[in-house]
Design a protein around this nucleic acid. Structure first.
Lengths: 338, 338
DNA sequence: CTGTTAGCGCATTCAC
DNA sequence: GTGAATGCGCTAACAG
């Protein structure tokens, strides 16, 4: 039965050093900066590590060296599938550089975001990644004063707390509206989630269109179910609806399912465009037109910016626009799976 | 331009104490154990905290108190949707208790799992959660010696490293086979991912059936696409296939899509059962029969066991079977969305 | 290449 | 109710 406190005294570097017959600092160097130590000593220390089962205590090292080798990441919720490839790529790059991720979920609540930021900072992360922009000015100021690199992601702003890697949601909405217009569709609708990025896309969509259109709003997390319901609401507002923009591929799939259930042919009777280019979008039948965003690239770029900063290197750009592109597939009359 | 190292000396508890006109330890108590301090002092300390913008350093506190208030969680990959609700529930409960999660991705690689475990342990987490069982005996032994509570999840074993919360995949496979048999279907197929838990379900399925059946195996992560392909392979093996068990709802959806594309009616021509009860399963058309597992409950239970252990409380059971249930919906001839 | 000294920021232990 | 001394485990800075 494992005890919750270590029964046997935990092995420290001191023990390793004694075992190897060297001083503590030499053992330390042998492990973390072998270039400074003779081959023979390194060998003896490694031997001692094995003999004792030593596991370094990075907390203690970090206390002295002022670097925790941890990066804090804040996401609204893990259930928001869009961020996962970004977080995955982020952890991969950071892990390769010896950094671990501490994860926090803000739950779409600004007050919660402020509180979580506090507890995160008290872990002294070397850097911080946000999914989205930091909302409250108090938090922005606090982050600036924390003096650590901060990357906001999945959005764009001229005034990041520190750095930002993402794309313009306003432009996404605008691009989709433009695409619909070039297709000649006039009777449009929006099925959207209620988060602020979706709201921006909607705003861009309406602005480019130059007029209001029927909208169905679903609370986060958006889902197939909310997509089905949204199409019902939109058809109630305009039974002759020609095309729908959905704020996520999950909702778009719901719209497709509901359309089929109602005997509407896609795209002949109704065209559908999603957002996110989820794994299933290319392989559904009909394949789904959607907006592709390179989530892993956002994560990798964020990681590289942070790591550069942690190494005190200069960063060329503080605002990185990774853009997006519309992938036309069958649900709007495209051909294939793109 | 934020520097990567704090420009201004970071505010410490010592600074707060000086500002408040008390000793460091009194300031410490005022913040973490106010019962021991007079009301007036608490007030002055809190004032000083605000004035200085002090953020506690939990790393330093943890060094002395031997508790990091961090819990390490290892998942195969964030893209495995099944674990997300568990991780989400886990973080929620832990966060409420003042614990943060450090997340690691093993990437389905056993060697990687061992290495990651080492780097995780060097953060001195107070506890550790695994998605799945710990594979290598070396890692199991190392975890035992670490002396921290460990919960393996999403599986069951009589010999956990410490504790386990999950259910029997063997029984799941067996239950689905039994369900198919009571329905009178004889020509069965399996569309499965290649992870070890899916392999167990397949084994249970075949054991209960008492004979081999056509199988299509897809590499992780299983997806709609791999489901579509799998159905093609299965039909090539048995054109008169009556029912398919899929190791994930994503694959099951792919099977449904492919079946429709081939003009097969579900469930009349082909019955389909998935696994996981994903959010879309109930709302797809046809609604999907699947196996429901209470992911959030696994996360909550794991968190509670860990927290109890961290408080040195006794834990009643070290092996907790949370079970599962088959939810019958339209894809196997059930009625509604259950 | 190796060792000594000092201290990271805080909490435990003991004193008052 | 408050404080002084001490040390958690490790590494930066300096010496040799």
């Amino acid at each position: 039965m494992a005890a919750s406190r270590p029964a046997r005294k935990t092995v420290t570097l001191h023990d390793v050093a004694r075992e190897a017959g060297v001083s503590t600092i030499t053992a330390s160097r042998a492990l973390s900066n072998p270039a400074l130590v003779s081959k023979d000593t390194i060998e003896r220390v490694q031997q001692a590590v094995r003999a004792t089962g030593y596991i370094p205590n990075l907390l203690a090292g970090g206390l002295k060296s002022q670097r925790s080798h941890m990066v804090a990441a804040l996401v609204p919720a893990l259930s928001v599938a869009q961020f996962l490839p970004t977080i995955q790529a982020l952890t991969d790059v950071l892990d390769a550089a010896g950094y671990q991720l501490i994860l926090g979920q803000t739950g779409y609540d600004h007050a919660r975001e402020d509180a979580l930021l506090g507890t995160m900072l008290s872990r002294r992360p070397d850097a911080l990644v946000m999914s989205g922009l930091v909302h409250s000015e108090a938090s922005r100021e606090r982050l600036r004063r924390a003096g650590i690199p901060v990357v906001e992601t999945w959005d764009l702003t001229d005034h990041p707390v520190d750095m930002v890697v993402g794309f313009s949601h306003l432009k996404v909405g605008s691009a989709i509206a433009g695409y619909f217009l070039t297709k000649g569709w006039q009777r449009l609708g929006i099925a959207t989630g209620d988060d602020e990025r979706a709201a921006q896309r909607r705003e861009g969509f309406v602005a480019t269109l130059g007029r209001e259109v029927p909208v169905a709003v679903a609370p986060a997390p958006s889902s197939l179910e909310s997509g089905r319901r949204a199409l019902g609401e939109l058809l109630a507002q305009d039974p002759a609806l020609q095309a729908v923009y959905c704020s996520s591929d999950q909702m778009a799939q719901g719209v497709l399912v509901e359309a089929r259930a109602r005997g509407l042919r896609v795209p002949q009777d109704l065209a559908v465009c999603g957002f996110g280019n989820a794994a299933f979008a290319a392989h559904y039948d009909p394949s789904m037109t959607t907006v592709h965003v390179d989530g892993p690239a956002i994560g990798r770029m964020a990681a590289e910016l942070l790591l550069a900063r942690c190494r005190d290197e200069a960063v060329a750009q503080r605002v990185v626009d990774l853009g997006f592109r519309i992938i036309e597939r069958e649900s709007t009359g495209g051909s294939g799976r793109g």
